[in-house]
Design a protein around this nucleic acid. Sequence first.
RNA 1: GUGGGUGUAGCUCAGUUGGCAGAGCACCGGGUUGUGGCCCCGGUUGUCGUGGGUUCAAGUCCCAUCACUCACC
Length: 373
Amino acid sequence: MFSFEIEARDTRSRARTGRLTTAHGVVRTPVFMPVGTHATVKSLTPEDLGTLGAGIILSNAYHLYLRPGHEVIARLGGLHRFMGWDRGILTDSGGFQIYSLSPLRKIDPQGVTFRSHLDGSTHYFTPKHAVEVQESLGADIIMCLDECTPYPADHEYTRRSAQLTLRWAEECRASRSGGTDQALFGIVQGGMYEDLRRESAQALSGLGFEGYAVGGLSVGESKDLMVSMVSTATQELPEDRPRYVMGVGTPLDILRCVELGIDMFDCVLPTRNARNGMLFTSRGRLVIKNAQYQDDPEPPDPGCECYTCRNFSRAYLRHLFLSKEILSYRLNTLHNIHYYLHFMNEMRDAIQSNMFPEFKNGFINRTSEYGGE
RNA sequence: GUGGGUGUAGCUCAGUUGGCAGAGCACCGGGUUGUGGCCCCGGUUGUCGUGGGUUCAAGUCCCAUCACUCACC
């Protein structure tokens, strides 16, 4: 049970809005998926997420495989029941975590050997294994195992890497047990080379997946390069399938990708930055620890309707942050997730009413400091 | 009262044969893009307990004094 329908297209850009249906509900796109790596969006309850309006979250097969173990979660009825969340879940395969977290990793044509960042134990992951782990977790959308190409990388290395990811995508597709409601997404690689991005997207489309992701971005490249790669890859992907840019990004990054026809996003920024005292507001970023807020009675964002802004002052939130109180993480996270989801909501409405360019210009004028440069 | 120890940044402390007063933490800024709440980058902060002396030059050597502290009376 998985479907995607486009409901409206912006006539002056490639932006579109639609509906993504899984066994755990319908979400409107473009959608932002809060990150819940360890089967929890840090500091929030599923009830909080529901109240905020989150319809789908991202979790990580790599982390849950290492701890508590995907078999444990399967025995307890799957990831949804385990974490008490009855809406959508997408799991990342572990490709990126092996790239970013493992102190030692060795890739061969069949799979990847890596050391756990938790205890140093050695593990071997194949595309088949990645699918098995994600099937046992029971997420609504699962991702192919891929190699996140490092940046910078030369053309030849990147070409081989993208080919490997493509071969693994084929193996992942062949490894599906069937009989599940899960959708499998392929991942476009190709580093920062337009020809490789194009080839990767074309070949992947030829294999046929329920959805397509663009991976290997936000790894240190410039914004223009990132946008250019998203644009190239997207042009080669089927119109009628959801497109997902992994790990992106700032509100401005998301805006630019939506403009290019992207439907799905995940990013740690709203949650991680919340824990580091950075709040997203309608007028730009607000660093709550700054001394200038010591006596400030205003809420973080006076126009915001989130629980945090309706009830607490900048002065109080600064105090909680400097005192490292647990409530600081929670209130800041509630606010930032509300900001992101509200932002997506406004964008969808703008596309629906064919006002996306106006929305984009208005946003940039209000919040020039976001992810600018 | 006698003998010893310690006084250096907001805190805990380094400081060599006398040669530009330092570190960690805190504090103040900045960063964070398919998450360890971590981490990274930059910055501010001084009556070197006080007063004398020796010396070209003293946190450092000498004298006195004050505070805290330990042991013994």
